[in-house]
């Protein structure tokens, strides 16, 4: 189960790269109305379902109509309960993302820039990567307790691997021809890293961080499933135990929005760094 989660995340990283390719030909132009086509299907389904429940064709007890889901979401927001949960989840994801991301960048950079270090580190890390991250949960709980530390650790592990792989891979695939330009101008190792390697890997580093963040949101759910008194994951479990499907769906929608917003902020924040590249942009 957890293996599946991890696998789909790896492939989503490749998916992101594949999606990047066609937009190469796309030029920045006025708002493309065809984007709205994407909203058509979910809205149609929602309206149909709403109508089906209204006209008594469906019960709507296990699958509540959209109006009730939004009412629940609104109620949660009004009491302030929603924000407590959102904040708890966000804090865990961000802390885990920062720890896992920084570790991934450091180890990825080491492994990408030195053959010796790569031979030393990479086999072990690859072996660890093969372990479904959720299998660490019992160990983390024993070591770090059932509160925040073990949750953050699990998220950090989830974020670490895509970032590590992305950074190491990006450094290894830097164009040798550009590195030679650095040699011609007699750059020192540090200068070479700063003036050529770093800018060259930035676009792929952003992709790696984005898939790391995506995994962070995936793992926060697992972390909150293992016992939490707040967080969107807690809302999910609570909704199941209390038989409140509208609360579960409200939490899912909150997750979707939160994940999308966090990803957009990351893209926006790194945009100035990769502006020179026309492929990473107009993606998702």
């Amino acid at each position: 189960m957890s293996g599946e989660i991890a696998n789909s995340a790896w492939s989503s990283q490749q998916g992101a790269a594949a999606l990047a390719a066609p937009s190469l030909t796309e030029k920045r132009r006025a708002f493309d109305w065809r984007i709205l086509l994407g909203f058509l299907l979910p809205i149609a389904v929602a309206l149909l379902w709403e109508a089906a429940v209204r006209f008594g064709l469906a019960q709507g007890r296990l699958v509540p109509p959209p109006s009730r889901i939004f009412a629940t979401l609104l109620a949660l927001a009004e009491t302030g309960e929603l924000w407590t949960h959102v904040w708890a989840t966000l804090w865990r994801v961000l802390t885990g993302f920062i720890i896992g991301g920084v570790a991934g960048i450091v180890f990825g950079a080491l492994s990408g820039s030195s053959e010796t270090i790569r031979r030393l580190l990479d086999p072990t890390l690859q072996a660890l990567r093969a372990i479904p991250s959720i299998a660490w949960v019992p160990l983390f709980i024993l070591w770090l307790g059932i509160f925040e530390a073990s949750k953050v650790a699990l998220i950090a592990v989830g974020v670490f691997f895509p970032v590590y792989l992305g950074i190491a891979g990006a450094i290894l695939s830097v164009d040798r021809k550009l590195v030679e330009v650095g040699h011609v101008f007699r750059l020192s190792r540090v200068q070479l890293a700063r003036r050529i390697l770093l800018p060259a890997v930035l676009p792929e580093a952003v992709i790696a961080l984005r898939s790391g963040l995506g995994l962070g949101f995936m793992f926060v759910v697992a972390a909150e499933f293992m016992g939490a008194s707040e967080g969107l994951g807690y809302l999910l479990v609570d909704g199941q135990q209390m038989g409140k499907p509208d609360q579960i769906l409200a939490a899912i929608i909150a997750f979707a929005l939160l994940g999308k917003i966090a990803d957009s902020l990351l893209v926006l924040g790194t945009k100035p760094l990769v502006r020179w590249q026309d492929i990473v942009r107009e993606r998702l």
């Binding site: 021809k177 550009l178 030679e180 330009v181 800018p199 020179w276 590249q277």
Partner: peptide
């Protein structure tokens, strides 16, 4: 070089 080899980020 045979190719321009400009640094695309500059």
């Amino acid at each position: 070089f045979q190719e321009p080899r400009l640094l695309p980020w500059l």
